[in-house]
């Protein structure tokens, strides 16, 4: 049995159309106009047990709406879905015992109280056996390194500390599937890395199915085997992350600070995006050359003071994907 099975899932919201300004508001008061907005347009996919899936798309693509339908928060306009054999919106409560969810922008933790108090409440919400709960809680505290701020009110925690507590709270009841909606939003690189390691550990050790949305290419590369990409509510890619990278992550952005102004730079597969004296931003087509080769060539004639290598924004990759894929689904 598939852990997640989605067929022709669709969600249409009714959105009020209003012209700008006070006059627009007055017109809208007497003669309101509504338009249908399709947030998710008939998507179909499935996820196996223990899979780690990145659910991607630009802002407004329908990612959060889909995750909310799969966790029973929203009812779809049409289509069907099962998660662990349950229909999320009609068997919400039964399903909720078996899944965990983390919404980066919505906290389960009580703002004025220490995380330990929320853990206690979660044990009552999920009706956990006391001994099992205590063992599980202690294990998560150790693993997520929460010991030092367990008694500190949540309002005094940093965003990274809060997110670690958030994920630990969602794992207390040993969920079979974990839905993460932008779990690393707003976190610094070190905390992001730690959170990714912890999620990977949970997947490896307990076989938890991971379904994650993110705008962070690092999350996808480090966490996920497979990527499902949607745009404008429709599915545009469904395949292995390696394949996606091979196909679409063809460019890297290299920012350099050199000791001296290098003048004009030219090499196959390299284009200069920006140059201001010693500061240069290059776009490197990794299908033609490698970062290593470009840097080696530069270092042969110039001294590099500082350097960063970045993936292009996820939006760029998705835009490229959307242009390439005309078919709805690509299976490998």
């Amino acid at each position: 049995m598939k852990t997640i099975q989605v067929e022709q899932l669709e969600k249409i919201f009714q959105v009020k159309k209003k012209q700008h300004g006070l006059s627009g508001s007055l017109k809208s008061l007497f003669k309101p106009q509504y338009a249908d907005k399709t947030a998710v347009e008939g998507i179909t996919f499935s996820v196996n047990q223990s899979e780690t899936v990145a659910f991607l798309g630009p802002n407004g693509a329908g990612k959060s709406t889909t995750i909310k339908m799969l966790t029973g928060i929203l009812h779809p306009s049409s289509g069907s879905a099962t998660v662990l054999g349950c229909c999320p919106w009609t068997e919400r409560s039964k399903l909720a015992y078996r899944i965990g969810s983390v919404f980066g922008q919505k906290s389960q933790l009580w703002y004025h109280l220490p995380p330990l108090d929320t853990f206690e409440l979660m044990s009552r919400i999920y009706e956990l056996r006391r001994e099992d709960y205590k063992a599980r809680r202690d294990n998560l505290i150790e693993r997520f390194e929460l010991g030092t701020y367990l008694h500190t009110p949540v309002r005094k925690l940093s965003l990274g500390e809060r997110m670690r507590c958030e994920i630990a709270a969602s794992l207390l009841h040993r969920p079979q599937a974990l839905f993460l909606d932008e779990p690393t939003i707003g976190l610094d690189a070190v905390v992001k890395q730690r959170i990714r390691e912890l999620i990977v550990e949970m997947n490896r050790e307990e076989g938890t199915t991971i379904f994650l949305t993110s705008h962070d290419a690092g999350d996808i590369e480090k966490l996920c085997d497979r990527a499902i990409v949607i745009n404008h509510g429709g599915l545009v890619f469904d395949g292995q992350v390696d394949y996606m990278k091979q196909q679409f992550l063809t460019h890297k952005t290299v920012q350099l600070v050199l000791e001296n102004d290098p003048g004009e730079l030219a090499a196959p597969g390299v284009s200069v995006l920006n140059q201001g004296g010693c500061r240069i931003t290059l776009s490197v087509d990794t299908g033609i050359t490698t970062i290593e080769a470009v840097l080696a060539a530069l270092m042969a004639s110039h001294r590099i003071v500082d350097m960063t290598v970045q993936d292009p924004p996820m939006e760029d990759i998705i835009t490229r994907m959307y242009g390439t894929f005309q078919v709805k689904e690509v299976s490998l």
């Binding site: 223990s50 709960y133 040993r174 969920p175 076989g207």
Partner: peptide, 25 residues
């Protein structure tokens, strides 16, 4: 990239299926 030991069954630690629902509520 993950190479998870893919087919683990997750043992529940919830009493949800047992009697005493009202007491737990």
């Amino acid at each position: 990239m993950l190479t998870a030991d893919k087919k683990k069954s997750i043992k529940t630690i919830s009493e949800q299926a047992e009697a005493g629902k009202l007491r737990r509520l």
